[in-house]
Write a protein that binds this DNA or RNA. Structure first.
Length: 638
RNA sequence: GCCGGCGUAGCUCAGUCGGUAGAGCAGCUGAUUCGUAAUCAGCAGGCCAGCGGUUCGAAUCCGCUCGCCGGCUCCA
């Protein structure tokens, strides 16, 4: 008699050792049909495994995230099987599940997306065949024999411990695999191949070039459809696309990886920085600016010449080596070090919107997200050890305030001391405890990445979440125990002795270029009023009303509202359409009605029109929304 | 940097088998003067990314260079 305990505490009894499937079926046929695997006494395994003794079983179904992961791994096998049917000489390597689906690295001739239809058709056949997926266990030497003609599998086998090796078989296909897998190929219901690229065996450029084919799979066609719709939405929101359409910025071959900002892009840029300065002044920061071209001796002192040189642009001027700054900190160190500081002056919060250049590899450039020249909203805070906690807390609160203004949620991650690091245990202890104490007082949950800190100190990274649920690391707060040392910074303490200040680097937008790009995608180009490049579009009903329209626009401009008159001799419909496509948040039409009554007719981007709004109250409302930085325009009656 | 794909008008794209460049939108001109998502007509706009080669002839085929896009961490 075998007793199986279920998660609800219920016990099922069996005369013979049952398989997982038997147990599932004893619950109900319908339930069993949706099971993909089981967890027996904490061990994840296939449903067809026999349970030899008493144990606790939990089933993984098509509803569980783990179930999806297992099925995607099976999908990778189905894809590999299909590819082998079409390319019999292909050699398989590895095929894991990743966040965005699955891939398989295969040694085969280059495949492109044109080949996907054939591979997918073959996969579809395999799915329809509902081939049972069976686990087999063989001794290692037997596995070595089976795979004698498969160089990659042999190499993997050699890395595995001796003993039994599991092989999964479905029809004419088998693959070395840890498992588990879904019971049969029919579970792979909704799938699509997404992209193909080159990848190296073991990510090593000196090794063979493989073809990596990516796919995505779901249990339900609806989920696949939703996923594809998400990708389409992200494509539509792509900041490069919107940046071109709305005339915000561009890139040119003459300066690869360095953005040109157009007048409309600069309107947003300046609004971002105006706001940033407002909050930083309020938080007790002063603003500085350091040169972008500095001599080699500075970079030697900071350590960048030794450690960061491949990424730096250098020049020889009057036979002296210079480098364009890839970071603002060394300049900031010079500023702090140029005079004596009393403990009474600390903390010094010195902000700098600094333009830095980094020579990134050409292949990693990506719109505004990854550039070679960008501005950091940097700040260096110099303080005493007991100021660590309040200062970090102050940064976290500032971060919270600023991100909230954009409607961006975020989470925090703490990175601790890496294997290779400078500083004493005591210093790391003080530093890390200071960060933790600040995090505790701030009160949000955070993730800890052990050993992920910089060599010169621990850090807190801030990851924002945009309107599509994608996360981006923007802000970071890093403690630095190296630079104050290298620049021999000091302050005079209450004891009249020299002391080394604690220093942090922190950014909130991070790269302003990148943050700009994220905002474009987050808002899909439809910026809140305070950020919109053109806040009000004034549309005269006909050419005779153009002077009136201009007078309205002039009035708004005087109040500091960014306004544009559509002076074209086009139909009103056309002007409205173009204003909508240009995402102008307030569209004002000027006809005789408005001219005679001193009112305004306002159309917002949701298509709603309010007529007869008194000009004075409209102006007040607009200024109020701008100064409150509302995410959506509010207070308009009618 | 490496692998794959791509590069044609300001933008989006067509261009067959190698035969000498095309559309829509935007722009300009003229007509129209319109009440909330495209009025009509005309005009202009190109070293087909660059350089070299094959050819009687190259946007098209080949090579190199530059740039852009996707991928290059996920480990049976």
């Amino acid at each position: 008699m075998i007793n199986i305990t279920l998660p609800d505490g219920g016990i099922k009894q069996f005369d013979q050792p049952p398989t997982g499937l038997d147990v599932a079926q004893s619950i109900s046929e319908g339930f069993a049909r949706n099971c993909v695997a089981m967890v027996l006494d904490e061990r994840l395994m296939d449903l067809d495994r026999t349970i030899d003794g008493d144990g606790a079983v939990r089933f993984i179904t098509t509803k569980d995230p783990e179930g999806l992961e297992i099925m995607r791994h099976s999908a990778a096998h189905v894809m590999a099987q299909a590819i082998l049917r079409l390319y019999p000489d292909a050699k398989l390597t590895i095929g894991p599940v990743v966040e965005e689906g699955f891939y398989y690295d295969i040694d085969m001739p280059p495949v492109s997306e044109e080949d996907f239809a054939r591979i997918e058709a073959e996969m579809k056949k395999i799915v329809q065949e509902k081939l049972p997926i069976r686990r087999e266990e063989v001794a290692k030497d037997e596995a070595l024999r089976i795979y004698r003609d498969e160089p990659y599998k042999l190499e993997m086998l050699k890395d595995l411990a001796d003993g039994t090796i599991s092989i999964y078989r479905q029809g004419d296909f088998f693959d070395l695999c840890r498992g588990p897998h879904v019971p049969h190929t029919g579970f792979v219901k909704a799938f699509k191949l997404m992209k193909a690229s080159g990848a190296y065996w073991r990510a090593d450029q000196t090794k063979a070039q493989l073809q990596r084919v990516y796919g995505i799979a779901f249990f339900d066609k609806k989920d696949l459809k939703a996923h594809l719709a998400f990708i389409e939405e992200a494509r539509k929101r792509n900041h490069r696309r919107i940046g071109t359409a709305l005339d915000l910025f561009s890139f040119r071959d003459e300066a690869p990886g360095m953005a040109f900002f157009h007048p409309k892009g600069m309107a947003i840029w300046n609004a971002l920085l105006d706001y940033w300065r407002l909050e930083h002044r309020a938080a007790g920061y002063v603003e500085t600016k350091t040169p972008i071209l500095l001599q080699r001796k500075l970079w030697e002192r900071s350590g960048h010449w030794e450690n960061y040189r491949e990424n730096m642009y250098t020049a020889v001027i009057d036979e002296i080596d210079y480098a364009i700054k890839p970071m603002n900190c060394p300049g900031g160190m010079l500023l702090f070090g140029r005079k004596h500081h009393s403990y009474r002056d600390l903390p010094v919060r010195a902000a700098e919107v600094g333009l830095v250049h980094r020579h990134e590899l050409s292949g990693v450039l990506n719109g505004l997200f990854r550039v070679r020249a960008f501005h950091q909203d940097d700040a260096h805070i110099f303080m005493t050890p007991d100021q660590i906690q309040p200062e970090i807390l102050g940064v976290l609160r500032l971060v919270d305030k600023i991100y909230s203004t954009f409607g961006l949620g975020f989470h925090l991650e703490l990175s601790t001391r890496p294997a290779k690091s400078i500083g004493t245990d005591a210093q790391w202890e003080t530093a890390t405890e200071g960060l933790k104490a600040a995090l505790a007082e701030y009160g949000a949950d955070y993730k800890v990445n052990e050993g992920d800190g910089a060599f010169y100190g621990p850090k807190i990274d801030i990851h924002i979440k945009d309107a599509l649920g994608r996360t981006w690391q923007c802000g970071t707060v890093q403690l630095d125990m190296s630079l104050p040392e290298r620049f021999d910074l000091s302050y005079i303490g209450a004891d009249n002795e020299r002391h080394r200040p604690i220093m942090i680097h922190r950014v909130i937008y991070g790269s302003i270029e990148r943050f700009f790009g994220i905002l474009v995608e987050h808002f899909a180009g439809q910026f809140p009023l305070w950020l919109a490049p053109v806040q009000a579009g004034v549309l005269p009903l006909n050419d005779d009303l153009l002077p009136f329209a201009r007078s309205v626009a002039e009035r708004l401009e005087t109040l500091g509202i960014r306004t544009e008159v559509d002076h074209r001799s086009e139909s009103l419909n056309k002007k409205v359409r173009d204003a909508q496509l240009n995402k102008i948040p307030l569209i004002l039409t000027c006809g005789n009605k408005e001219k005679e009554s001193g009112t305004i007719s306002v159309r917002t981007l949701d298509g709603q029109v309010r007529q007869g709004v008194p000009m004075a109250s409209f102006e007040q409302l607009v200024l109020d929304n701008i100064s409150r930085r509302t995410l959506s325009f509010d207070g308009l009656q009618g």
